[in-house]
Design a protein around this nucleic acid. Sequence first.
DNA 1: TATGAATGAGGGTTCATTCAT
DNA 2: GATGAATGAACCCTCATTCAT
Lengths: 202, 202, 202, 202
Amino acid sequence: MPKIVDKEQKKMEILISATRVFARMGFANTKMIDIAEEAKIGKGTIYEYFKNKDEIFEYAFHHFMQTMEEGLGADLSEISDPVQKLKTLAYSWGRILAEHEEDIVQIMLDFWAEAIRQKDESRLKIIDFDRIYDEYRGLVMTILDQGIRQGKFKPVNTFYIASLIVGMIDGVMLQYILDKENFDPQEALRCFAEELIVGICK
Amino acid sequence: MPKIVDKEQKKMEILISATRVFARMGFANTKMIDIAEEAKIGKGTIYEYFKNKDEIFEYAFHHFMQTMEEGLGADLSEISDPVQKLKTLAYSWGRILAEHEEDIVQIMLDFWAEAIRQKDESRLKIIDFDRIYDEYRGLVMTILDQGIRQGKFKPVNTFYIASLIVGMIDGVMLQYILDKENFDPQEALRCFAEELIVGICK
Amino acid sequence: MPKIVDKEQKKMEILISATRVFARMGFANTKMIDIAEEAKIGKGTIYEYFKNKDEIFEYAFHHFMQTMEEGLGADLSEISDPVQKLKTLAYSWGRILAEHEEDIVQIMLDFWAEAIRQKDESRLKIIDFDRIYDEYRGLVMTILDQGIRQGKFKPVNTFYIASLIVGMIDGVMLQYILDKENFDPQEALRCFAEELIVGICK
Amino acid sequence: MPKIVDKEQKKMEILISATRVFARMGFANTKMIDIAEEAKIGKGTIYEYFKNKDEIFEYAFHHFMQTMEEGLGADLSEISDPVQKLKTLAYSWGRILAEHEEDIVQIMLDFWAEAIRQKDESRLKIIDFDRIYDEYRGLVMTILDQGIRQGKFKPVNTFYIASLIVGMIDGVMLQYILDKENFDPQEALRCFAEELIVGICK
DNA sequence: TATGAATGAGGGTTCATTCAT
DNA sequence: GATGAATGAACCCTCATTCAT
């Protein structure tokens, strides 16, 4: 009988290792041998679990997205007040950022960069950011629309206010990634929830 | 010394060509031959003007930053009212985004991605985003502080509100890059200027 | 000793499977996993019966040759008339070609190709075509010499006429392999027996 | 100004070197570095002239075929008598075999082997032996038909007699390749021309 | 005995860089 | 100065073989 291995678990282990290396070096600069060494396996073993380097990237992206969405969904599902929901969105995102190993967060940029590259190429669209952004903006828009109907928000252009909010969250992530020492994303997002939503003008 | 002028001009031509290609393919996927073809010169000629591929990237980055800063600085220098200044910041950024060939805008992500990569490596820090973000946040903070002193803004945490505003601008850029058809960055930034600054809550 | 019989039988099963795959893909393109799957066993199991891939090839060749020789020998042993013997040689070969699963026939080319490769290398001569051709030509020469002595053939150069006949049979195989739809090797060899041979008879 | 090189000539030089190595080691066993060393160039230089290894093989094949056809065509074009034409075909082939560096001849088997492999695969059919055999058989058939009409040949089945003749030539090549020391292909083909042909003549 | 997970040497290919012209 | 032919280090991926179970 051959060695019995939980292939799914090992695949996930490799994925985690790969994600760490992608985060450290960037996808394009990551060599298969780096991933292998990080996962403490042989170079060839990776190919027992993934078709090629691109597939690892694909899986890494989907795994990352799923983690984010699960985290957000759980936090938001139990709240009904739109204002509170908007605040919670910000707090949750901050919490996820803080909790998750920094590695996973850093990889986000490579996803962005890769998504852009794929826009003009004929390559399979692994990363469909059009859809993802639509989804996220839609989530925020729903909250805003609901709040407007309930008379809790002003009758703003919800699409673009939503895009500003989503953009702000991304922008905060960027600054956190690039300047970890001096930047606390949770505090930034708290400021958004407590100060910006109500307006900074007197 | 007309020779030197010519040299500088040709160097700039190559830089522009390279930037276009970086924007189209991403830095890692750009080959020297691509740049040479875009610039309609021989492959070897590039090395008469740049030490290597990395140096082209470095120059491209600095050129990009300079262009942005010049554009912003000119717009802001003549305004004294803090509220107006903040609005102008948003409008200016939107205008720059709209004016500059999309190519130059797309390259931003590669700068971000590269900046991250350089954080953990011993490579020379070509792209010092710590400083850049500090500068931009500082710019916004100054406006906010001034506004607070003049009683026009609430006494918010200016560092983090500034980071939120800077982040929002970056985030809007991202969405524009990734979904050009359905997303108008100028309209988004107008919403920021007219609706978010005063607060969306009634 | 039933154990040994079982081992031998399984080895033969693997050999047959391997031969089928060699025929389908060519030796160089055949992977051990292909053989394992064809034989419906595990990849590692092959190594319980064969030292390595080369050894499988070696056995496949010898098994193939033995099959051919046995088929020919049986057909020829009972005939005494040289003319009839020559005709039978052709008919038998045609029959063997037709009977044996095409797979086994196709592999012949790989044997040839491999034999050539081994000529200049220091590798062990698994496939000694010098000897094999000598044997086959010898077989035909014996028939021709006998026929000449009996006055049934013209006094031709038996060595080269034999080589022509052996070559013709090989050449017919080639055409059959490469163009199965439009080429009937049995008909071709019948033509040899009935039409071409009469030319060398007095 | 860059180094001026006759690209066509250099491509041919590489082709010749590659052909020599293919002949020595077989296509599958030939490494790009082997070709490079044989041609006394760097490994990467090969890719300036050929897309990949397969393309070298393709060119090698076509070059070989062209050489053969040119040689044959020139010899046959001036002869009108069918019997003489058939004899000349044999003599010419023998001469070409003898003249051409053995390397080029040896590669033939790899072409055959590769042609077979390509039959069942979806790979582009570089080597269309169906057509090639049809052409060669057609050439011989034309001669035979003409001879029959002129009353110089018996009314044989020209398709299969042609295939026997073509096969014989191939078979002679094989024996020559595999047993150069003891086998003279020109003598064998002379025997065909002087002794075997008379059998099909009235 | 049978297995298939693991391995790493090896090969095809790419591409930044050099340098002779 | 300008060029592009030449180069080889480097990288992705394959697959024969091993070995723990």
